[in-house]
Amino acid sequence: MDPFVVLVLCLSCLLLLSIWRQSSGRGKLPPGPTPLPVIGNILQIDIKDVSKSLTNLSKIYGPVFTLYFGLERMVVLHGYEVVKEALIDLGEEFSGRGHFPLAERANRGFGIVFSNGKRWKEIRRFSLMTLRNFGMGKRSIEDRVQEEARCLVEELRKTKASPCDPTFILGCAPCNVICSIIFQKRFDYKDQQFLNLMEKLNENIRIVSTPWIQICNNFPTIIDYFPGTHNKLLKNLAFMESDILEKVKEHQESMDINNPRDFIDCFLIKMEKEKQNQQSEFTIENLVITAADLLGAGTETTSTTLRYALLLLLKHPEVTAKVQEEIERVIGRNRSPCMQDRGHMPYTDAVVHEVQRYIDLIPTSLPHAVTCDVKFRNYLIPKGTTILTSLTSVLHDNKEFPNPEMFDPRHFLDEGGNFKKSNYFMPFSAGKRICVGEGLARMELFLFLTFILQNFNLKSLIDPKDLDTTPVVNGFASVPPFYQLCFIPV
């Protein structure tokens, strides 16, 4: 058959498939802009700032609406009420993970971030239990974070109060905490193996944040037939998995079943207990991918939040002064901060919360999916439909947070200066898919920041009023603009 005829037939089939998918069930789905064949609503979305586009569309179609990214149908949730109703009140029905062709290629359905069903539930339950087990290797997770915080302070001392970009050092600290939990080992910041790991993690975040990856996920045929950065992403992930597998083999040879040292040991012990169960989800494949998931999810998000926190503290020296006064009063100079201190430091706690609220790190979270046909607000959402959640619409709700575009710790303080919780605080998402490392991340943010401010004054290279804190939105995360500062020993 003539190649031209084959091409026309293929394009015609794709067009018909697109029209059929977009028209099927439209009477039951939430409203939304009319999609174009094949490309859907992509032309109506700013790929570099999806969150802003969703906010604009919500003003037209309401808090629940339908979009098509290519052939992929998505239902968008915008605003606290619908997000709570879906992710919390109907948590089980909305607990699936959205379709990610690239991740599915890399992870093969294993791990904790992109798995679904029984596998996801069992691996998540085990990971939560293990991360909360403060007795691994007779050292609590808090001990590990405190140790890394001391190392971080010593690295900052080496800058000798000269101007520096904190990106690298602030990236090393949370990565080392995860390494300590998974591998029972922290690395020197100049260790070549550690630097290679950091390089792969950072490069992957840069790649994932590009519009090209959005295109690959919406048109998965590209993955096999086109060159691009997605190939580098898959190569980096394969490198990390190979490295983790080597460490798993080392653990198998040296493990003491009665004295687990780290996450890998705990997983291997669980595998041993379930070795007679042919349906067990505790396999080497799941261990390797879960460890890679924890490394990827637990490094860049925390380091970016820390980097943004220091920029905001530079911009608002009056806030920094209040935090340091609270540190001096509650902790002093002669001991290290600990998590028990947080309950006695409402202002510092409010500042950490406000940093996370203000920066809105992951504006749309990772997409969910419905696990069955769901009736939601008089609409029928078919099983498997991807759910896109606007966390921006919750964290920047102007009824809950007056002047949401302003950095103001009073958003989390009552009139008496006591810490005030808010149900709208969802930087880790909400419901059954809430970030498994939430507790660890909150511990790291509090301890790293208090250790830094206990030991250093922060000095800006320019007038604080002239510092730009506008986030650089890159399609996946909101990151701070480049800046330098000086760490002046107190």
Rank of each mutant, 00 (worst) to 15 (best):
residue 155 E to D: 06
residue 474 N to Q: 11
residue 364 T to S: 10
residue 189 Y to V: 06
residue 391 L to K: 00
residue 301 T to M: 08
residue 156 L to Q: 01
residue 319 V to A: 09
residue 374 V to G: 00
residue 297 A to T: 06
residue 399 K to R: 14
residue 317 P to Y: 03
residue 75 V to C: 06
residue 169 I to F: 12
residue 442 R to K: 11
residue 415 E to M: 09
residue 97 R to S: 02
residue 321 A to P: 03
residue 405 E to V: 10
residue 328 E to Q: 12
residue 273 K to D: 14
residue 217 N to F: 09
residue 347 Y to V: 05
residue 235 K to V: 07
residue 64 V to F: 05
residue 399 K to Y: 11
residue 179 C to M: 12
residue 5 V to S: 14
residue 359 I to E: 01
residue 263 F to C: 01
residue 287 L to Q: 00
residue 298 G to N: 03
residue 20 W to F: 12
residue 179 C to F: 09
residue 52 K to S: 08
residue 392 T to A: 07
residue 103 A to V: 12
residue 202 N to R: 14
residue 435 C to N: 01
residue 79 G to V: 00
residue 16 L to K: 01
residue 318 E to D: 14
residue 190 K to G: 11
residue 33 P to V: 00
residue 227 P to Q: 08
residue 47 I to L: 15
residue 205 I to V: 14
residue 142 E to R: 05
residue 2 D to P: 10
residue 259 N to A: 10
residue 208 V to G: 12
residue 45 I to W: 04
residue 415 E to F: 08
residue 180 S to P: 02
residue 366 L to V: 11
residue 114 F to S: 10
residue 43 L to M: 05
residue 109 G to R: 09
residue 152 L to R: 01
residue 406 M to H: 06
residue 414 D to N: 09
residue 413 L to E: 02
residue 443 M to R: 13
residue 162 S to H: 13
residue 128 L to M: 14
residue 200 K to A: 12
residue 321 A to F: 12
residue 392 T to Y: 06
residue 224 D to A: 08
residue 99 H to Q: 13
residue 248 V to C: 08
residue 276 Q to R: 14
residue 74 M to F: 09
residue 490 V to G: 07
residue 62 G to L: 00
residue 82 V to S: 08
residue 328 E to D: 15
residue 41 N to W: 00
residue 319 V to H: 10
residue 449 L to I: 12
residue 85 E to D: 09
residue 41 N to T: 07
residue 337 P to L: 03
residue 349 D to H: 09
residue 155 E to I: 07
residue 368 H to T: 02
residue 471 P to R: 10
residue 256 D to H: 07
residue 348 T to M: 09
residue 452 I to L: 11
residue 435 C to T: 01
residue 280 S to M: 06
residue 213 I to E: 05
residue 161 A to L: 08
residue 34 T to E: 09
residue 372 C to Y: 08
residue 205 I to Q: 15
residue 196 N to K: 15
residue 274 E to M: 10
residue 336 S to A: 15
residue 51 S to V: 07
residue 80 Y to H: 09
residue 209 S to F: 07
residue 250 E to M: 12
residue 393 S to R: 02
residue 376 F to T: 00
residue 127 S to P: 01
residue 461 L to H: 09
residue 209 S to T: 12
residue 239 F to A: 15
residue 383 K to M: 08
residue 310 L to E: 00
residue 354 E to H: 01
residue 120 W to T: 04
residue 300 E to D: 10
residue 185 K to E: 14
residue 469 T to L: 13
residue 79 G to Q: 02
residue 45 I to Q: 04
residue 155 E to G: 07
residue 326 E to A: 01
residue 70 G to M: 03
residue 372 C to G: 10
residue 7 L to W: 12
residue 396 H to L: 06
residue 333 R to T: 14
residue 14 L to M: 10
residue 144 R to D: 07
residue 183 F to N: 07
residue 91 G to T: 07
residue 329 R to G: 09
residue 469 T to Q: 10
residue 232 K to E: 07
residue 458 L to N: 02
residue 273 K to N: 11
residue 124 R to C: 01
residue 449 L to E: 03
residue 445 L to Q: 04
residue 29 L to E: 07
residue 118 K to Q: 12
residue 39 I to M: 08
residue 314 L to C: 15
residue 329 R to T: 10
residue 67 L to M: 11
residue 312 L to Q: 05
residue 116 N to L: 03
residue 249 K to Y: 12
residue 82 V to K: 01
residue 85 E to K: 07
residue 325 E to H: 13
residue 136 M to W: 14
residue 67 L to E: 01
residue 337 P to G: 03
residue 116 N to Q: 13
residue 292 A to L: 15
residue 174 P to H: 08
residue 121 K to T: 12
residue 171 G to H: 07
residue 255 M to N: 05
residue 357 R to T: 00
residue 380 L to Q: 09
residue 244 I to Y: 00
residue 180 S to L: 07
residue 284 I to P: 06
residue 111 G to H: 04
residue 137 G to E: 12
residue 381 I to G: 00
residue 319 V to C: 10
residue 338 C to W: 05
residue 113 V to S: 15
residue 244 I to W: 03
residue 450 T to I: 07
residue 428 F to P: 01
residue 440 L to P: 04
residue 204 N to T: 09
residue 355 V to Y: 01
residue 103 A to H: 13
residue 361 L to R: 03
residue 12 S to W: 14
residue 222 I to D: 03
residue 378 N to R: 10
residue 137 G to S: 13
residue 54 L to W: 03
residue 282 F to N: 02
residue 205 I to W: 14
residue 446 F to A: 02
residue 244 I to P: 01
residue 332 G to P: 03
residue 344 H to L: 15
residue 122 E to T: 11
residue 433 R to M: 05
residue 72 E to C: 05
residue 171 G to S: 14
residue 142 E to W: 03
residue 48 K to P: 05
residue 149 A to K: 00
residue 105 R to A: 08
residue 490 V to L: 10
residue 267 F to V: 02
residue 33 P to C: 00
residue 349 D to T: 09
residue 123 I to E: 00
residue 267 F to D: 01
residue 342 R to F: 09
residue 444 E to T: 05
residue 122 E to K: 10
residue 150 R to I: 11
residue 115 S to E: 03
residue 208 V to C: 14
residue 346 P to A: 07
residue 245 L to Q: 09
residue 427 P to L: 02
residue 275 K to Q: 15
residue 323 V to I: 12
residue 272 E to V: 12
residue 19 I to P: 05
residue 209 S to G: 11
residue 31 P to G: 06
residue 269 I to L: 12
residue 485 L to P: 02
residue 96 G to R: 07
residue 73 R to S: 07
residue 181 I to D: 00
residue 7 L to T: 11
residue 354 E to G: 00
residue 383 K to E: 06
residue 382 P to W: 00
residue 351 V to K: 00
residue 389 T to Y: 08
residue 5 V to P: 11
residue 238 A to L: 12
residue 373 D to W: 01
residue 186 R to V: 04
residue 156 L to G: 00
residue 186 R to M: 03
residue 249 K to N: 09
residue 379 Y to F: 12
residue 291 A to Q: 03
residue 490 V to M: 11
residue 224 D to P: 11
residue 117 G to A: 08
residue 393 S to C: 01
residue 365 S to F: 04
residue 385 T to M: 06
residue 415 E to S: 11
residue 359 I to L: 07
residue 370 V to M: 05
residue 460 S to T: 14
residue 183 F to R: 03
residue 282 F to C: 03
residue 103 A to K: 10
residue 367 P to L: 05
residue 133 N to T: 12
residue 187 F to Q: 06
residue 298 G to K: 01
residue 241 E to Y: 07
residue 479 V to Y: 03
residue 75 V to H: 00
residue 293 D to G: 05
residue 187 F to D: 03
residue 466 D to V: 12
residue 133 N to D: 13
residue 261 R to C: 05
residue 338 C to L: 09
residue 349 D to V: 09
residue 84 K to T: 10
residue 373 D to P: 07
residue 285 E to M: 08
residue 304 T to L: 14
residue 272 E to H: 11
residue 204 N to S: 04
residue 20 W to L: 13
residue 167 T to G: 13
residue 97 R to T: 03
residue 336 S to R: 13
residue 151 C to F: 14
residue 185 K to I: 07
residue 137 G to Y: 10
residue 76 V to K: 01
residue 439 G to D: 15
residue 380 L to E: 09
residue 257 I to E: 12
residue 431 G to C: 02
residue 81 E to I: 04
residue 118 K to P: 13
residue 58 S to V: 05
residue 490 V to Q: 15
residue 169 I to T: 09
residue 325 E to T: 12
residue 75 V to A: 03
residue 59 K to D: 09
residue 427 P to Q: 02
residue 233 L to G: 05
residue 130 T to Y: 15
residue 424 Y to D: 02
residue 290 T to I: 08
residue 450 T to N: 06
residue 180 S to V: 06
residue 275 K to G: 10
residue 280 S to V: 06
residue 452 I to V: 15
residue 345 M to I: 04
residue 348 T to F: 04
residue 335 R to L: 00
residue 175 C to P: 03
residue 6 V to R: 02
residue 211 P to T: 11
residue 374 V to K: 03
residue 275 K to C: 10
residue 177 V to E: 01
residue 341 D to T: 02
residue 46 D to M: 05
residue 308 Y to I: 04
residue 307 R to D: 04
residue 264 I to R: 01
residue 47 I to P: 15
residue 467 L to H: 11
residue 294 L to G: 01
residue 109 G to A: 09
residue 103 A to C: 10
residue 73 R to C: 08
residue 249 K to C: 08
residue 396 H to E: 04
residue 10 C to Q: 00
residue 269 I to W: 06
residue 93 E to Y: 13
residue 260 P to H: 03
residue 339 M to T: 12
residue 313 L to K: 00
residue 390 S to G: 02
residue 109 G to Y: 06
residue 205 I to D: 09
residue 385 T to D: 01
residue 307 R to M: 08
residue 114 F to N: 09
residue 157 R to V: 10
residue 9 L to T: 14
residue 231 N to R: 14
residue 244 I to T: 04
residue 354 E to L: 02
residue 380 L to S: 10
residue 12 S to K: 04
residue 440 L to I: 14
residue 354 E to D: 02
residue 253 E to P: 07
residue 444 E to L: 00
residue 182 I to G: 01
residue 462 I to P: 09
residue 188 D to T: 10
residue 411 H to F: 02
residue 141 I to A: 07
residue 213 I to V: 14
residue 183 F to D: 03
residue 344 H to N: 15
residue 142 E to M: 07
residue 321 A to K: 13
